[in-house]
């Protein structure tokens, strides 16, 4: 079955395995502020299977966006290991796509030109590029808007265009940094559904950072819950439900509430006892 779809897309070499397994080992990252080193990520270990959808949630300042930028290769200054299919990440690559919270389409290019821009550094022959661009615009349901400029698109449409641009190079791994954070609630639900459909058709690995716990459990095979200062993994929650999912499923709601409680409640990490308890004595002294 998979072999059949591969033959339909001749621009992908047939012998390339459909992979995209990400290994993060002992990853630490400091930001330098003046002479002081501020730890942002502290010894992160994470294995992401090929084709998996992983959501990352956590309080602001937990380094989740930094983590995604490191995986994308926009920032190469880190300690530890990040490997995609065994290859250490050192810089950006068309194997790894990234979608930002803002769509970052170029305002002077049409939708079609914006998507096509991603293909400039590929060896796909020119005549095929137009077809691939059209396919991906269709994938995000924007056929008919090829000639539109970004300001003519709604927020949701622009973000879908950004998804098309990120997918047009067929990356093994797609990173999403709060991709729906700037959308209104209704549009967000709509684009979530689109994202799920796209993931089910493309089956590339996806790692999404989000503030929205409901979104995280709805889309993710696993939800990584992070702690702040320094950023580290507090808990990994398996969402063992088949896709596509029913948003109103009671299991999802329970998982969401559990994760929310964990994020908003007192910390239970034995490594950081000073954050743990609210001693009345302390409050009196303060």
């Amino acid at each position: 079955m998979t072999l059949h779809t591969r033959i339909d897309t001749p621009h992908v070499p047939i012998d390339t395995p459909a992979n995209g397994a990400l290994t993060i080992a002992n990853l630490s990252k400091d930001f330098r502020i003046g002479r002081e080193a501020l730890p942002v990520l502290d010894r992160i270990d994470l294995d992401i299977r090929a084709g998996e959808f992983v959501s990352i949630v956590g309080p602001s300042g937990c380094g989740k966006s930094t983590l995604v930028r490191l995986i994308a290769g926009l920032d190469t200054d880190y300690a530890g290991e990040i490997r995609l299919d065994g290859k250490r990440i050192a810089g950006t690559s068309l194997d790894r796509g990234l979608i930002f919270q803002d769509h970052r389409l170029f305002p002077w290019l049409t939708l079609e030109e914006n998507v096509g821009l991603a293909l400039l550094n590929t060896d796909i022959p020119k005549p095929q590029r137009a077809r691939i661009v059209a396919e991906h615009i269709a994938l995000v349901n924007l056929t008919g808007f090829e000639q539109a400029y970004p300001h003519q698109l709604s927020g949701g449409m622009a973000q879908r265009a950004a998804i098309a641009r990120a997918l047009v190079t067929e990356p093994k791994l797609l990173l999403l940094d709060e991709p729906l954070g700037a959308l209104d609630a209704l549009t967000r639900v709509h684009v979530q559904r689109e994202l799920q459909r796209i993931w089910l058709t493309q089956r590339s690995t996806m790692v999404m950072v989000t503030h929205d716990v409901e979104e995280a459990v709805f889309l993710g095979d696993r939800v990584i819950v992070m702690d702040a200062k320094p950023g580290r993994i507090r808990r990994i929650v398996d969402i063992d439900l088949p896709h596509p999912r029913d948003r109103s499923s009671p299991i999802l709601h329970r998982l969401r509430d559990e994760i929310l409680a964990e994020l908003t409640g007192p910390q239970v990490d034995s490594q950081a006892p000073e954050n743990l308890v609210h001693l009345p004595v302390r409050e009196v002294r303060a």
Binding site: A72, T92, S93, L98, F100, R104, F106, A118, L120, N121
Partner: peptide, 16 residues
Amino acid sequence: KAWFEVARLYRTPPLP
């Protein structure tokens, strides 16, 4: 800076 980052992500060649 955001636009420079997009160019880096897609490894846009110097001339384009």
